[in-house]
Amino acid sequence: MLYIKCPYCGLRAQKEFSYGGDATVKRPNINEEVSSEDWDNFVYMRKSPRGKHIELWQHIAGCRQWIKVQRDTATHEIFQTAKVTEEIR
């Protein structure tokens, strides 16, 4: 079970969180034209890297904040966590 440092609550067990996918995906702006290629990339295309991955988690059984976690998908090592408004490196 992972040990995730919520930027608001501190180190908490994985069972308090739910996973939310790639955090680097940016939704096209609302009310703006978007090409179907860009849209499809946003909706469907995700990288599945072995190694470092910046991803979203939500502290659902805690402060309910969505957070960013930089994790190694192979070893589960967590390098950094941040608020969603903050950048990871």
Binding site: S18, G20, Q58, V84
Partner: peptide, 17 residues
């Protein structure tokens, strides 16, 4: 119910803060 709340929180916190 739970999914919708998370969904709303996602857009408010991440997409349209």
């Amino acid at each position: 119910a739970a999914n919708v709340l998370s969904h709303l929180e996602y857009y408010l916190q991440i997409v349209w803060p």
